[in-house]
Nucleic acid binder design. Structure first.
Lengths: 98, 98
DNA sequence: AGGGAATATACGCTTATGCGCATAAACGCA
DNA sequence: TGCGTTTATGCGCATAAGCGTATATTCCCT
């Protein structure tokens, strides 16, 4: 099993990490919202979410024409802890103009 | 700045994570030791260490014909915390035979 | 049934990553 | 200086990752 590498690789992409940051509020977010807020195209965002889902970090739920993503429930504590640590790193998108 | 992604990507490779695990004892380890203990070729290990060094996770020191690597000193707490969390994930190489 | 919205996916392309092999570079020692 | 040891690196290759475009798919609503 190489779950550790999968998870780390999933987090090692700026847009995916940004998506995780949004999803980590515990609420559901549709792809359309994520792509808008992160400035990503539809297919790009969809695929990134697929990676996060495959890594076990998020789950999705079909709701009419939308697919709602949210933080995976019952996430192993090690994993949750890792994600928290990743989110604690300085966020490039939060940079203050000089 | 995309340091976060760099660090996560650096950790997202099994051999590199295993190297970090060894180096996280705070001691110095030469490439020859790492390659032996991790079963990697020389060039492979050297390059992996280069990636870790570039990510700022380790430092190297020339000692005669050896290059001693060790955990980077004064690592930002966020980063140290992240690495600790990554090392806390179940380790594939520590698997117990069934 | 038909149309529009939201999402996933197949395809092709470009770039990045990881690797082995061979070679260079740095060093100690005789 | 020449040799052995250790480490880094140039080169080429194979594979993976990421992306855009276009197309399917799923669902609601009329």
């Amino acid at each position: 099993m190489k779950a550790a590498s999968n998870i780390l690789a999933a987090l090692a992409e700026p847009t995916r990490l940004a998506a995780i940051r949004l999803l980590w509020d515990g609420q559901e977010h549709c792809v359309c919202e994520l792509m808008q807020r992160l400035g990503a195209t539809q297919s790009r965002m969809s695929r990134h979410m697929g990676v996060l889902k495959l890594a076990g970090l998020v789950t999705d739920r079909r709701d009419a024409q939308w697919v709602r993503y949210r933080r995976a429930p019952h996430l192993p504590h090690h994993v949750a802890h890792l994600v928290d640590a990743a989110l604690a790193l300085p966020d490039p998108s939060n940079r203050i103009a000089a």
